[in-house]
Amino acid sequence: MSSTSEKIISVSVHYLGPATKNFYDYLAKEYMKTGFDKVGPTQVKEVIKWARPLSCLFIGKEKTEKMVSEIEQTASQAN
């Protein structure tokens, strides 16, 4: 697993729970046509683009926005 995908999961697990990895695997496979393990720093924006509407279905808009902003922050610190 890439360090980027690990960071995204470590932030998201506080919102999406134990199925976070399944969520991102599904998201990457269905919408980005790639494996989530291979996601690099340049693809964070695309992950967010798809994660935002999808996670809204499960945790609501407010929590999604909080999670997304945390992912953005973590990704920018890594860069």
């Binding site: 697990v13 506080h14 919102y15 999406l16 729970g17 134990p18 199925a19 976070t20 399944n22 969520f23 599904y26 269905e30 279905l57 499960f58 945790i59």
Partner: peptide
């Protein structure tokens, strides 16, 4: 924890459905 569990269940059900 309960909210996260509910979200996870929703995710898993959604994936299974798809």
């Amino acid at each position: 924890s309960f909210s996260r569990m509910a979200a996870s269940l929703k995710i898993m059900m959604h994936i299974q459905k798809k």
